[in-house]
Write a protein that binds this DNA or RNA. Sequence first.
DNA 1: GCCGTTTTCGGCCCGACTGTTTTCAGTCG
Length: 584
Amino acid sequence: MMENTEIAKVLRDVGTLLEIDGANPFRVRAYENAARTVEPHAVPMRTMVESGAKLTDLPGIGKEMASHIQELVTTGALRVLQDLTREVPYTLVEMVRLPGVGPKRANKLWRELGVETIDQLEAAAKAGAVESLAGFGKKTQERIVRGIASLKKRAGRFRLAHADQLVEPLVEYMRTHEGVRRIEVAGSYRRRMETVGDIDLLVIARDPQPVMDHFTAYERVKKIELASGTSARVMLQSGLQVNLRVLPPASYGAALQYFTGSQAHNVKLRRRAVARGLRVSEDGVFRVPEGEDPDAEDVLSGERVAGASEEDVYAALELAWIPPELREDRGEVEAAAGGKLPELVTLDHMRGDLQMHSTWSDGHDGIDAMVKGCVERGYEYLALTDHSKSLAMTGGLDAEALREQWREIDEVQAAHPEIRILKSQEIDILRDGSLDLADEMIEQLDVVLVSIHSLFDLPAAQQTNRILAAIRHPAVHILAHPTGRLINEREPYQFDLEEVLCCCKENGVAVELNAHPSRLDLKDTQLMRARELGVKIVISTDAHRVRDLDLMHYGVEQARRAWLAPADVLNTRPLQELLGSLET
DNA sequence: GCCGTTTTCGGCCCGACTGTTTTCAGTCG
C-alpha cells in the first residue's frame, strides 16, 4: 500500500530518469507536476482509486498519469519505471540531487566514466577523474566531493513531516487492534526534532503476542528485522525503521520517559535520581536499598516509587513534568527543579500568518481562497507576501503588478471585514544588499519582508554584508528564512549569523521562523540565541496553497524546542500590538 | 505528458549565474 509521498517519489524519479535520458523536457516536467499534485493531496490516492474517483480531474493528471497512479496503488510497482531503469541506472537519480550535478552531467559521468553510484562518483572525484571530463573542472569536482560529504552526513534521516506521513497511518492501523489499550510514539519524533532516524512505538497491551503479530503484519512492512517477546523491529518500504515495544501499564510512564530521551536528558535525570537514593530505568523509579550499589544491574530490586505515568516519574525526582520538546539537556532539568519552566507557545496562541503566496506569484491558490483559509483557522490577520520581480521564475511582481494586486486585496478585504489583510511582499535582497522594489512602493506596504533567493555561494563576508545592508533599510520589518537551508537538501549559505542577529536587534528587525518542514529556518538553537539577544521573532508558514497554512504547527513545535513563550513571538499578539511592535 | 482550445495540435513560468569556455551549456531557483 503506497502513501501519496511514495507515489510522488516514484513519479518524480521517472521524470528524473527521463531527463537524464534526454527526453522531452516538457514530458519530464509533466512527471514533476503530477508529483506536486499527488504529494500534498488531502485524500490518499489509494482511497481515490478504491472509490473510483476520477484522477484526471486533478491538475496535471492526465490519462497516462492516472494509469500510472492506478498501477502503483494496485501493484505497488510501475512498469514504465522498470523499463526505464534497464536503460538508465536508478542510482543516477540520487546523483542529480548533488549541487552542481544535473541530468546532463550525471549522464556524462555515467557514460564516460562508468559511474553509477554516489560511492563510485566519490572515488572518481577524489582520484581526479572528474575534472578531466569536458564541461567539468577542478571547482566542480571539489563541489561534488563536498556535496557527497554533506549527503552522507544526513543519510538515513527523515524529515519530521515525512515521518509524520508514514507514522500516522501506522498508528491508526495499530489502534484498530482490540488488544491495543494505549499507544504513543516516543523518541526524537515525540521531541519534534526536525529530522528523525527511527521511530519508537510504545503500546500497552495485556497480551503482547497478538499485538506483535498485528504490527509485523502491517502491509507497509518491507522486512521484519526482529520480533521476540515484547519487542519488534521492522523496516517499512519507505526505508524508515520502526521499533515496537509492548508494555504493561505499571511501567508505561517510565518507558515513555526513557524512550523519549534525549540521551543527554536521561543521563541528567539518572544522575539526579542517584543523588536522591533512587534509580530510574525504563521499568520505573526504584528506591535503592540501603548499602546497595545504585549502578547494579538488578534493576528491579528495591521499592518501586513511580513508573505508571511520566508525571509521577518526574515527580519522584522532585521535578515538574517537562514537555518533550525541551528534553535536550539545555537547562530544562534545572528549570523544572526551580519551578522555572517556560510557558511554551502553542498553536492556539497564533493570531496570524505573516508569509504566504498566492497565484499572483508562485502560489497555487488565489487571494480570496488564502484569506478564507486564514479565517477558517481563526486568524485575526495575515500578510500576503508574493515574490518580487527579480524572481522571474515565480512570476514575481513589479511595481505595476503590485499596484494591481493591491486593488484585488482591497476588494477581498471589503468582503472579509473579520480579518485584516496586510499588504506585503517577499522582497528579494539583491547582490549588493539593495531591495528589489522601489522605496516609494516599499513605504506603502504594511509589512516588509526581505529574503535571499540567489547567489547562495557568495563568500561569507560578502554574504553577511549583503544581508546587513538589507536589514539596515529603514522600512524593513522581517528577515525571512534567514539561513536559506533546506533540510536534507541544501546547506545554509555561509554568513555570520551572530552579526546579522545583532544588526536585527539594533534595527528592530524581526527574524522569521519559517514553519515549512523543509526549512524550519531559523532552527532551534539559532532561535534560542535570537531570543537571548532580544531579537523579535515571527512564525510564518510560507504557504503556497491553502493547505500549507496547516504547517504552522511545525513552526510552533520548533519554537517550543527553542523555549519560546508566546511573548517571544510577535504574531501571537493582537493586530494593533503586532503593527506597533513591527515598527519599533 | 498535460492542457485547452482559436478543440486533437502547439505551447508549456524564465532569467541569472557559474565554471567552463572562447561564445556557452548546465544548473539553479
